[in-house]
């Protein structure tokens, strides 16, 4: 049964990868990569059970957090062009609202 879940996840990852390659905007690619990362987390967890090594769960746990930070980092890089500057101040949301 873990094999079935693994195969389903691999197919889903292939679909996400296709969207990442097709684009068309950069946001589509970020979304697809984020979704790909989520499926990777699940794949690692299922794979740990498939091979009978639950240690894989720790990797999967860390991958969730890295996936989140990577998405935020890419979005920040897109917006500001570098990662060193502090982001918008708390008031900027309201200023930007029409």
């Amino acid at each position: 049964m873990f094999v079935a879940a693994t195969l389903a996840l691999l197919v889903a990852m292939g679909l996400a990868l296709a969207r990442a390659l097709l684009g068309p905007t950069v946001y589509d690619r970020v979304l697809a990569v984020n979704s790909f990362g989520t499926k990777t987390v699940l794949l690692i967890a299922v794979f740990g059970f498939l091979t009978g090594r639950p240690d894989f769960l720790d990797i999967s746990l860390i991958y969730v957090l890295i996936n989140f930070i990577a998405t935020i980092a890419v979005l920040k890089f897109l917006k500001f062009g570098d990662l060193g500057t502090p982001g918008g101040d708390p008031g900027s949301d309201r200023e930007m609202a029409e």
């Binding site: 049964m1 079935a4 389903a8 996840l9």
Partner: peptide, 10 residues
């Protein structure tokens, strides 16, 4: 659960 989860992922 695993199969339906995989299905929703697809």
């Amino acid at each position: 659960l695993l199969v339906s989860g995989g299905g929703f992922c697809m």
